[in-house]
Design a protein around this nucleic acid. Structure first.
Length: 118
DNA sequence: AACCTGACTTCGG
DNA sequence: TCCGAAGCCAGGT
């Protein structure tokens, strides 16, 4: 029996990556979440850059709604010609509006997962 | 084992 | 309000 390397842990495990993916999958249509927000919900508020890595490595493979992830300013981080246009189109298609400054109004479109009810 | 890198974020001037 | 610097994390080289 070959030992399971820490590297290939089963999906749905309890690694930051698996949790982050689950969080991303929960972002509803018509809403967006920031990298930092995902990181925080996945358990590490300082791992925004990890979220980026995850999107790079598995957004396609795991069919993640990668387009719903944007930066803290409410903007698309992908460069023009490098996915920017596609992401913007996909978001608009879900009803998300871009302001004149090309940013999304987070107060309106940011996903706010319900947790505690006061 | 250093060093580099990235679809980030925060903070100070 | 805008911009640069610094902080952060982990996978790849």
């Amino acid at each position: 029996m070959a030992a399971i390397k820490a590297k290939d842990q089963p999906p749905g495990g309890d690694t930051f990556a698996s949790r982050a993916k689950r969080v991303i999958r929960k972002i509803p249509r018509g809403k967006v979440a920031t990298y930092g927000q995902i990181a925080a919900l996945a358990g590490n508020h300082r791992a925004a850059r990890q979220v980026v890595r995850i999107l790079h490595s598995s957004s396609d493979k795991d069919r993640l709604p990668w387009h719903r992830v944007i930066n803290s300013k409410g903007g698309i981080s992908l460069a023009r010609g490098q996915g920017y246009e596609l992401q913007r189109a996909m978001l608009r298609q879900e009803g998300i509006r871009f302001q004149d400054n090309d940013l999304i109004d987070l107060d309106r479109f940011q996903w706010v997962p319900r947790r505690i009810r006061i």
